[in-house]
Design a protein around this nucleic acid. Sequence first.
RNA 1: GCCGACGUAGCUCAGUUGGUCAGAGCAGCUGAUUUGUAAUCAGCAGGUCGUGGGUUCGACUCCCUCCAUCGGCUCCA
Length: 644
Amino acid sequence: MIKITFPDGNVKEFESGITAYQIAESISPRLAADVLSASVDGRIYDLDRPITEDASLKLHKWDDKEGKYTFWHSSSHLMAEALEAIFPGVKFGIGPAIENGFYYDVDLGERQLVEADLKKIEEKMIELARSGEKFTRIDVTKAEAMKKYTQKGDQYKCELIRDLEDGTITFYTNGGFTDLCRGPHLRNTSVIKAVKLLSIAGAYWRGDEHNKQLTRIYGITFPKKSMLDEYLVMLEEAKKRDHRKLGKEMELFTFSSKVGMGLPLWLPKGAALRDRLEQFLRKVQKQYGYLQVITPHIGNKELYITSGHWAKYGKDSFRPITTPQEGEEYLLKPMNCPHHCEIYKSKPRSYKDLPLRYAEFGTVYRYEQSGELHGLTRVRGFTQDDAHLFCRPDQLKDEFCKVIDIVLYIFRTLKFDKFTAQVSLRHQTDHSKYIGSEENWEKAERAIQEAAAEKGLPTVVEYDEAAFYGPKLDFMVKDAIGRSWQLGTIQVDYNLPERFELEYVGADDKKHRPVMIHRAPFGSMERFVAVLLEHTGGKLPLWLAPDQVMILPVSEKYNDFAKKVCELLNNYEIRASIDDRNETIGKKIRENELKRMPFLLVVGEKEETNGSVSVRKQGGENLGEMPVEEFAKYIKGEIDKELE
RNA sequence: GCCGACGUAGCUCAGUUGGUCAGAGCAGCUGAUUUGUAAUCAGCAGGUCGUGGGUUCGACUCCCUCCAUCGGCUCCA
């Protein structure tokens, strides 16, 4: 008999060799039907794999990450089986489960896969899934494994096997398809009810561009047809929220191939929106003691040799520009920190001066590969909401807390309710690649974690994710339809103070080296606007909306009254304008609704007589007739509420 | 940069095997209408069919080059 410990602490005895599936069955048939895989002592197991020793057991269903992972991983094998049936001789790379679904990298030789083939593969997958093939696991020796794939002529699998340790190699078979795989897998394919292959893409073998490019097929599967439908609706929704589409519709920004790819042009409404965001942040930063600075768009190459960026990024960057007479080399600034360091150095600093917080909406230029550019989220020229805090080591934690406060305030105001923070620390044992003293690193790593804990941030700690110059804290937000985006970042830096020989005179009258914090709560104005658009679907909060109020005269007879209303609202600094086109009121309402106008004011004979407006809120809610002044106060009140 | 897809009017998109196929809706302009909470009517104007070459009696349609866009890969100070 063996003892099985359940997540709730319960312990039950079972015969040795029992499987997770049998245990689930013993609890309830319903559970047995739902369970997809299990964790045995923290390692994921197939349901039919015998358990022979005392262990802790956790059963995974569709709702668990592990359950989905198993489901999709098995789905990728199912797809592989279908591919082999349709395209005999296909060679396989790797086929893992990913966050949303799975993919398989395959080598189809000379054959070209097109989108139309996906349908065929889907159908084959459904057919195979229906037949309820079992997944069976066998242990094989390295030699056997090698032999099989050498015979099959699949050099990719051979390469994978070469790196594996003998005695740990397993094969999984479903139907006529056998794959090198660690597992775990579903018991059989019949639980896969809905299949959608989403796209085809190229992917280098092992992610190395010197290797052959394989065909990557992305897909997703579900245990219920209705779940697939929901997922497809979500994808449609995501398409509607695409910031590139919204940016065009709302006339916020555009691109021009003549200006250059990845170089956004902000249109008047977009520029105004961005300006409001900047003012918002400026105001908060002022309260937190930041000092606004301005630095030029270019910097002498020497500056970047000093900072080390030239050595590390120079060759992959925009080439330097040269002065015609002296031949001096200048770089378009790829970051603001070196400039800010020189501001720090502009005069001797005392410990009493610290912390010093320099903020700048600094526009930077970075060369990104052409294929990597994407709307406003990946561009070649962008403006960071940058600031550099120079402080004493003992001030680090406090400064960190304050930065977190700013980030949280921004998230709260802009209704990013779901977020997490990633703490990126050094490799747990190997510290050879990091600059800065052991003592300072420990202090900083502790400071970040304590600050995050004090502020109640939900955090995930990742080792070996720190930059060589310091640990960092990155913020991830979830948008309204559940997608994750990385926004702000806070980074500790020991490198630049060293390289720029930054100093302050301590209370002991000796020279000390300050610590630097880089931080950008938005990340960049471009990226933030993009995420905000996708989060809100274009329905921006009132205080940010490019237009807040549209006045709709019932007919041209009331244009003069509309003008008066508009002026009055403008005097209250409300962004109002008049739709005085010669159109029916119905059409004006429809079009302004489609433009997501927050408030529509209908004015006609009744309103002119009463000096009032009839208020319609975006979406159709009718707030009724009210005096113009009252509406002005109402809307100001709504804006104040948003900014509380 | 690499692989694949795609590029027709300001926008969204039709255009069959190369031969009345240069089209529609919206937007724009002109006129009529003077409108009460999601599309009033009529007319007009808009495109070297991304670019450059080639095949052909004839190319939006077939082939090649380049450019841009989209989906990925790789990278991200």
